[in-house]
């Protein structure tokens, strides 16, 4: 895999070094909505180029945390820095991928991807970059199609290409594969790993899927409220370092063990008992 992962980047017009990826630091981050505490005391250091998965029960503030990293939302307390400088407002060092592809229906996949280019990109250069990215995500043949003409998986790949267009230091993905069918989801996970090798960036990903988290991430962060005091808001309950280099074997026994632990942390028993 190591040879396979370095070769594609060699064909990119500006081979991006790992210097492209940026570290993220969250210190004491909290968020209150109308006096309801959703998040509190989140401290997390994410290294440049790392893949971190955030998991947690619905409504525990995972997505809020992602939105804060990209500047779509502001923390009520604490601070977030990317590469040492604070996030204030929409931060263009970050690229966001949503659960829905959110493609503009009136634009072709190619022109949708163009939306992700940094402002002021020269036309020819931008077109070349978009073409490469669409090829990278396997849409080279479909660049002229409209979103309604393609499947959900293809649309999601186009949105990934769009997110990569500006060579983001940080890629935040909010349940990017949650709406896809199981098989497509597995393919997309592999694609994401390929992309991560080809275009080094830090990836922070929210998922509901423990297996996905264990397959993709260097560390899995479990968010949740203290069962004794649920009104205090969610914070980091555990951080699991996932062993083994990627690509991992989906059937790995160690992972199976971690899976049980994480599911337990989510309040789901691995074995249904009555």
């Amino acid at each position: 895999m190591s040879t396979a992962s370095t070769s594609p980047s060699a064909t990119l017009s500006q081979p991006s070094s790992s210097a492209g990826a940026l570290g993220v630091r969250l210190s004491g981050v909290g968020r209150t909505f109308d006096s309801k505490v959703v998040l509190r005391d989140v401290d997390l250091d994410i290294a440049a180029g790392e893949i971190v998965a955030l998991i947690g029960a619905s409504g525990c503030g995972k997505s809020t945390l992602l939105r804060q990293i990209s500047g779509l939302d502001q923390p009520s307390t604490g601070r977030i820095t990317i590469d040492g400088s604070p996030v204030a407002g929409i931060d263009l060092r970050c690229s966001v991928g949503f659960q829905e592809p959110r493609l503009l229906p009136w634009r072709s996949l190619e022109h949708n991807t163009e939306l992700g280019l940094p402002r002021g990109t020269a036309k020819g250069e931008g077109r070349e970059r978009v073409r490469e990215l669409l090829r990278l995500v396997g849409l080279g043949h479909a660049s002229g199609l409209r979103p309604r003409q393609v499947s959900g998986g293809m649309a999601q790949r186009a949105s990934l290409a769009r997110a990569l267009a500006r060579r983001p230091g940080v890629l935040v993905l909010d349940e990017p594969f949650g709406a896809l069918d199981a098989l497509t989801r597995l393919q997309m996970q592999d694609l994401l790993l390929d992309v991560h090798s080809a275009e080094p960036t830090t990836i922070i990903l929210v998922t509901h899927d423990v297996d996905e988290a264990l397959y993709l991430a260097d560390r899995v962060v479990l968010l949740g409220a203290d069962p004794q005091a649920p009104a205090d808001g969610a914070t980091i309950r555990s951080i699991t370092v996932v062993p083994g280099a990627r690509p991992r074997d989906r059937g790995d026994a160690t992972l199976a063990h971690l899976r049980v632990e994480l599911l337990d942390g989510l309040g789901v028993s691995a074995h249904h008992s009555s």
Binding site: S7, L191, A198
Partner: peptide, 18 residues
């Protein structure tokens, strides 16, 4: 070495798969 396009299609993301 294999171009990005081939890289992608090798993994079946393009043509046949979609």
């Amino acid at each position: 070495p294999a171009s990005l396009h081939q890289y992608a299609s090798t993994y079946g993301y393009s043509a046949a798969g979609t």
